[in-house]
Structures are given as structure tokens and as C-alpha cells.
Simulated scan of single mutants.
Amino acid sequence: MNPVGATPCELCAGDGGALVWRNAELRVIQAAEPEFPAFYRVVWNAHVAEMSDLDPGQQARLMAAVLAVEQVLREALAPTKINLASLGNMVPHLHWHVIARDRADSRWPAPVWASAERPVEPALAAVWAVRQPELARRIRERLDP
């Protein structure tokens, strides 16, 4: 949990998105990003800010979950690229962004946080959005074999 007197942490207060999978150490959520329906986060449950706050075994388990989400997105969607990021500038609670990208998305080739280069391609977002239940199932299967 956050230190006493600190600004409340949104990732301590709630899941941070649509919960896909959770264990005692971490969780996978689908972010509420309508333009990017294949935008996931792997969140460490305890309030720590950096990867080096974890011991080597915890680091390995966290990265295994990040890679599992990446593999599911690659296999299911065949995106142009997967973006991985662990920033924590806005929310200093350890989490990794795993984002399937396509050349047709509104911000390609810039990061998803950049200004849009063109209008959203509704067909791409719709096709990926309709696959969310399947993606969630495949992520759970990958993390709980």
C-alpha cells in the first residue's frame, strides 16, 4: 500500500482495468483504451516502484507474465509490433504495458500516448475488440497451464 500521507495509488485502490487474471503476486488487466483494444497491463500487486525492488525470482515471474501476454497477442492477432513499456511516471506502482500495434492505428509509428496522426481505423479496433474474450481466455490458459 502507499506510504502514509502519499497520494492514493490507483493501482493499489483497484485493479486498474478489466481483470483478466490474478495470483498472489501480480495481475493482468485489459486497459480501458477504446482506440487500443489490445492494450494490457501486467501489474505487480504490492506497491513497489521499480523492478530492482523485487528479488530475482519475483522479477523472473513478472517478466514471464509479460512475455506470456505478448505471446498470446502475437499468436492471436498477428500485430505489426508489440510495444512493451514500464514507465511509472504517472503511477509509480510497478506495471508493464503490453500493447499490440498495427500500422493502421491512429498513432503509428509513434507511441500510443502521442497525438493521433490520423483518424482511428474503426475496422481494426472493432476486429481486435471482439476478440477480447478469446484473448483473456488464452492469457489465463498461458498463465495457469
Rank of each mutant, 00 (worst) to 15 (best):
M1L: 04
P3Q: 00
A6M: 11
C9L: 05
C12V: 07
C12N: 05
G14A: 13
G14C: 03
D15A: 12
D15H: 10
G17S: 08
A18V: 15
N23Y: 14
N23F: 14
A24M: 06
A24G: 12
V28D: 00
I29C: 02
Q30Y: 03
F36Q: 13
A38S: 14
A38E: 07
F39M: 06
A46C: 11
A46D: 15
V48K: 11
S52F: 12
L54A: 12
P56W: 12
Q58L: 08
Q59E: 11
A60S: 15
R61C: 00
A64K: 09
A65L: 10
V66K: 01
A68E: 05
V69I: 12
E70V: 03
E70F: 03
L73N: 06
E75T: 13
A76N: 02
A76L: 09
L77H: 00
A78H: 07
N83C: 02
P92E: 10
H93Y: 02
H93G: 10
H93P: 01
H95E: 07
W96N: 03
I99H: 00
R101K: 10
R103L: 10
D105P: 09
D105A: 10
R107T: 15
W108C: 01
P109R: 08
P109K: 09
A110K: 12
E117K: 07
P122T: 02
L124G: 06
L124Q: 14
R131S: 06
Q132V: 12
Q132T: 13
E134D: 06
A136C: 04
R137P: 00
R137S: 11
I139R: 03
R140S: 06
R140L: 03
